[in-house]
Nucleic acid binder design. Structure first.
Length: 211
DNA sequence: CATTAGATCGTCT
DNA sequence: GACGATCTAATGA
């Protein structure tokens, strides 16, 4: 099993859409803001390209206050707040200044079930604990203050990742969920998931704001 | 089962 | 001032 930084070094210069599927099946370890440890096997991710390349990416129009971490060194967490109430997390995968990341959309809790359940009261089934990007951060105890944190090894770090290669035939891909405009079209089929896994979130097209 | 309304606020235009 | 890389509950078929 390779750590995140080894994997990123091996794929140096590759596009986010090439790196994203390589993260599937890998195990993300997080010591949450409340101190409890949860390990999650990634089952669904989305790749986001760099500035001027990917109209669906936060980094498309260049660096801003919010997306600064995307333009920093790879192997860090890019955590952002959205819809007035939700937190989502990415792994920065491109070189410094490029602005690429992989959104962590869903996974299977493989350790720390009790902590994850406690953080996700209301989940009807364990497969729902981290089925969706905002649910995932909640199950793992990732908070806004974790933006920019380095993903190393747990312990001693609070965040870690171990890759676990998955056969290509078990991976499917398609348009990204909830992305408006051309970035959410078939032109960017950069959502990747493990075929048939119950923790993969349902696809939802972007919905324009109601009046 | 599918579709929709409402929640709620930081960020960028 | 408009709008989200979303989620839940409620309503309709």
């Amino acid at each position: 099993m390779a750590g995140l930084h080894e994997l990123l070094a091996e794929l140096d210069g590759a596009e986010a859409a090439t790196i994203a599927p390589r993260l599937l099946g890998g195990v993300l370890s997080v010591v949450g803001a409340d101190g409890a440890l949860v390990r999650l096997r990634l089952t669904e991710v989305e790749a986001y390209g760099g500035a001027g390349v990917d109209p669906g990416a936060h980094s498309f129009r260049g660096p801003t206050r919010r997306n600064a971490t995307m333009f920093g060194p790879p192997g860090r967490l890019y955590v952002y707040f959205t819809y007035g109430m939700h937190v989502c997390a990415n792994i920065v995968v491109g070189a410094e200044g490029v602005g690429t990341g992989v959104l962590l959309r869903a996974g299977e809790v493989v350790e720390g079930l009790e902590a994850a359940r406690a953080r996700r009261l209301g989940a009807r089934d364990d497969s729902e604990l981290a089925r969706g990007p905002a649910r995932l951060t909640r199950a793992l105890g990732i908070v806004l203050g974790d933006d920019g944190a380095r993903i190393g090894q747990v312990p001693p770090d609070r965040f870690g990742f171990e890759a676990a290669p998955v056969p290509p035939q078990r991976i499917a891909n398609g348009p990204r969920t909830g992305v408006s405009g051309p970035g959410g079209s078939d032109a960017f089929p950069w959502r990747f998931w493990l075929v048939g896994d119950p923790t993969v979130s349902p696809y939802r097209a972007h919905r324009p704001r109601a009046r």
